[in-house]
Amino acid sequence: MTFKTLRGMALATCGVIAASTAAFAQGEVNVYSYREQKLIQPMFDAFTKDTGIKVNVVSASSGLEQRIKTEGANSPADVLLTVDVARLQEAVNADITQPIMSAALDGIIPAQYRDPNGAWYGIAMRARVIYASKERVKQDSISYEELADPKWKGKICIRSGQHMYNNALFAAYVAHYGEAEAEKWLTGLKANLAQKPSGGDRETARDIAAGKCDIGIGNTYYWALMNDKEADKKAWADATKVVLPTFKKTGGTHVNLSGVVLTKSAPNKANAMKLIEWLAGEHAQHIYADMNYEYPLRKGIKINPTIASYGEINPDKLPIAKIAEHKKAASTLVDKVGFDN
């Protein structure tokens, strides 16, 4: 390595540093995100176009609450975007939020999908549903409870029980029926698995298409993406159908949120509020619906046709915050019944 290349690299790094400190200038908002940067960039580009405010982003898969907390008063973060309700609660527990006071938002986001104290707001919604083989599964309605029925023995595929999507579903089950019932149910579900949990929701569809199992559990948008956007995975969507399952007790389907938090130390609070309100606005909600295949939370925004083709969804009425409350219990039960073994 010559001196010249080293010097070049040092300059490049100074560039990196300069680019990142520019975030403190006017007209910007800094977002820490659990959503992948590529996925949300179109949204932020649209926001910048609408408002002239620049969005700086860093995305990660875990630990952002700790990062914000440790960075403390000097943290550049204004907004934390998450994809799971337990994480919204986690941000509250870590004491890194400040209430989002917005009458406008309260008018748009139904009370069920926001924190009573305004610490977080849901922006869009997804459901955890059944992917079923078109060929081998005749049923058009399935209850979550039924997944533990021995008639499915050796026929169910699922990703790790510790993955946050499953964790939230299991936590909802605990919230409805209590830990003892939930343990029985998980034991039954485990006994029905065709294979050890692994892969992701797309692999679940792939395994059903391949005939390894008949039904699986996945999020609403994965199937739609495979069907509409991913030519190489279209065959997996073609071999499967999506069934919106319900809890027998309530007749509702388990949903989870993409949500947003305003950080306690937000240096660009006014811009952050603009961004948060914009995310609940018509433009962003259309993007959530059509590019990300989520259920928009704002009334009057059309659900994407592919998602709508699953049938009309009746979101479970369980207060979303209840799910976060039982997260740990659900995780503990997964260990206890050896779900991932």
Partner: peptide
């Protein structure tokens, strides 16, 4: 890198990861 990088900075590794984590690493 994922947890500590500054705003607006990606490395090749984190760039790939955002596809991989959505199940679309290709």
């Amino acid at each position: 890198t994922l947890l500590l990088r500054p705003l607006n900075v990606e490395t090749l590794s984190t760039y790939i990861y955002q596809f991989a984590t959505r199940g679309n690493f290709e």
